[in-house]
Amino acid sequence: MEHVVAEIRRDHIANIIRDGKRVDGRGFDDYRPITIETDIGHKADGSALVKMGDTQVMAGIKLLLGQPFSDMPNSGVLTTNAELRPGASPTFEAGPPKPPTVEIARVVDRGIRESGAIDVDKLCITEGELCWIVFVDMHVLDYSGNLFDAGMLSSMAALLDTRLPKVEDGKIIYGEKTNNKLPIANKPVETTFAKIGSGVVLDPNLDEERVMDARLTVATDKSGDMCAMQKGGEGTFTPDEIFETVERGAKKAKELQKLLKD
């Protein structure tokens, strides 16, 4: 199901962006208010609920024991998954994941993986035989735009919140957590910009996301390096817009990283 946006609304959003303003009164580089709540449910090994304006994403971490991949016998395994639950928007439907869902999961996965956010070598227990498998599950509860940034932030907050479960004889003892954290080596965040007419704005809200021509997500690690990027939407960016956006993204990334507590 598609959501229809009135032509007049579309024009209005684009027009005021041309005048340097936004529909909700924010500046071009402003996030909506962000809150991060961790340790939501005790069954998850780590969890976080991120609210970014009216968008709500909960991420939960489950740790399982399994076998390392044969080409990486000394490393643990990371799996990232997203679910756009039908309760989060009247336009979402139940069923197998659709391309937008897979895209969110994969872009967040790349941000975590490529930045080395988890030191996967420390997740190996016995070479080639036993390692930790880290499941990052993003559960979108309320969709009001910009799931990439909220999804990434909730995933990192949940990973930082994670405590390893107790293990005896190669088996997990559920319900007994240790004080050991995951080996977190980096704090990547993602910043997403929407191009609407002539302007490029950070953290598109629902209205802006519906009318945007194109989208650019930049993942930045704690040293300010880029670790992933994704362009989306049917429109295009000019090279100058890209360079400028990456720079703006790196600046905002520092603010987001401050919200992630160790």
């Binding site: 449910g41 090994d45 939960g60 489950k62 499941f135 599950d137 559920y174």
Partner: peptide, 8 residues
């Protein structure tokens, strides 16, 4: 949710 129970 996948993380709502002990075993994912």
């Amino acid at each position: 949710a996948p993380f709502s129970v002990s075993d994912r």
